[in-house]
Amino acid sequence: MNHNTPLSPRPLQHLDDCRQRVLSAAQLKAYGVNSAALNEQCRPGGPWQQLLPGVYLLHPGPPTADERLHAVLLYAGRPQTRAAGVPAQVTHGEPHAPQATPQAPYANAMITGLAALALHRFASAPPLLSLDRIDVMVPRTRRLRSTGFARLVRGHGMPTPQRISGVPVAPVPRALADAVAQLSEAGAVRRLLTEAVRGGHCEPAAVVRELNEARLLTRPHVIDAVDSLLAEGRAIAEDRMYEMVREYGLPDPLWNVDLRLPGGPHLGGVDAYWPDQAVAVELDTRSPRQGLRPELQEESDGLEWSEYARKREHLERLGITVVHITPRKLRESLEQQATVVRTALMASVDREPAAYVMVLPH
């Protein structure tokens, strides 16, 4: 007997001891379980049960949270075994059942919505076992329907999933948008969005962009939550700027001021300004405009960036150095941003003196 010699179907008792307690009909068939045997095992009071169409739990009693997640992904992804319908084969003298393709065990399916946020450890998301439905994202081309505790979400462009304990999970901004789509209670929406920012899961602009893509910014309770989110995000970014100045020994700037030419036009507001060195720091907290159609968002981003660029060019023509910082850079590389600001301050001694500008409270 060589390593490729098929064996007869494996006894069903082996499956009861298998670590994989949730299997699809195709996987069971690969183990040698035919329809008659499957029906016998799933009889009322039997040792197995059907969780979703084509997905079976190999023990009685309620499924665990992990088993429910696995069942939803199996239903939505329908993974193909290495040799579906072919009996188990010998490897190094021991029988092994065919395994799901490791590169894509659930095809393109991924957990999203509240279940994904629970996996991302959101305290404001309900526990997995308390969810009546588990949202699972699939490409638009899939023809499956929502059923049982599996609710299918058609992806408007599939993101790259993150792996959490082996489970493919939608990134936080996308999971938030899918969760908010199912929520009508303003407090629940606000708590989720606030935790996303306070917990450092993502930046406000990324959340708002996904909400805009999902056309959720026309709902009043979502708009109110987004307003709070943006204010929260800016406050957190400003706190990190204060920390940057304090922790890395930068000279104290003038915070949140407007610049104006004497007797001339308003030059714009900046978040921090060192008048002796003529260095300004500006936080980029741009976000998609509420209610704007996604197809026009790119144009809006370009226009808003043009406004930033025009103000920066105007200030630099006057001899003022403008350091552009995003909340994400402050979160991920605070020391590096402090070095950038310090370098700009030190370089001021080698520049021509800047034009005199008036500094006014913002």
Rank of each mutant, 00 (worst) to 15 (best):
E94N: 11
P161Q: 09
A347W: 00
L152W: 02
G263Y: 06
M244F: 01
T160G: 15
A347T: 00
F149N: 00
P168W: 02
G157A: 13
D301F: 15
G269L: 09
E185Y: 14
T112V: 06
R219L: 11
D16R: 15
G166M: 05
R163E: 09
L73T: 00
G269M: 10
A116G: 05
E352L: 11
E210P: 13
P288G: 09
L74W: 00
N108T: 07
P159W: 13
E332S: 15
S306H: 13
S300P: 08
P98Q: 06
L303Q: 15
Q41V: 10
T5L: 13
R21P: 12
L315S: 02
V55C: 01
R215S: 13
D301G: 12
V322F: 07
E247H: 08
R78Y: 08
A344E: 01
R246D: 09
T147E: 04
H70Q: 07
L345R: 00
P47Q: 11
V169L: 05
P102D: 02
I325H: 04
P159H: 10
N108C: 10
L73D: 00
M244N: 02
E298D: 15
L259N: 11
R351G: 00
V136R: 00
P265D: 13
G200C: 03
Q277V: 03
A104N: 08
R143P: 06
Y356G: 15
T64S: 07
E203W: 06
G291L: 03
L259K: 11
R198H: 10
A71Q: 01
A196G: 07
Q41A: 15
V357I: 08
E203L: 11
P44K: 09
I111H: 00
R198M: 11
E67Y: 01
A76R: 02
L318I: 06
V226M: 06
Q337W: 10
R234M: 15
W274A: 02
Q50I: 04
I320Y: 00
R234K: 13
V72Q: 00
G268R: 09
G45D: 12
A237Y: 11
A354I: 03
H3I: 10
A278S: 07
L267N: 12
L216E: 09
A278G: 02
H266I: 10
A109N: 01
W48Y: 12
R240L: 12
R142V: 05
H314N: 14
S184P: 10
Q13T: 15
A177M: 06
R310K: 13
D135G: 07
Y75K: 00
V180M: 03
R246Y: 08
P353T: 04
A196E: 04
L176T: 02
P275Y: 03
D258N: 14
G85K: 04
L38S: 10
M346K: 08
R142Y: 07
A83E: 09
R143D: 10
A65N: 06
A107K: 04
V33W: 11
V222T: 07
V72T: 01
G263E: 03
T285V: 15
V138Q: 04
L296P: 13
P127M: 05
E232N: 12
A272R: 03
L28F: 06
A347K: 01
D350Y: 05
M110Y: 07
P288K: 10
D276E: 12
R190G: 08
V55R: 01
A338V: 07
T160K: 14
V167I: 08
D66W: 04
G77W: 02
V180L: 07
A237R: 13
G77S: 05
T321S: 04
E307V: 14
T5P: 11
G45R: 12
L74F: 01
G61L: 02
R143E: 09
D252M: 14
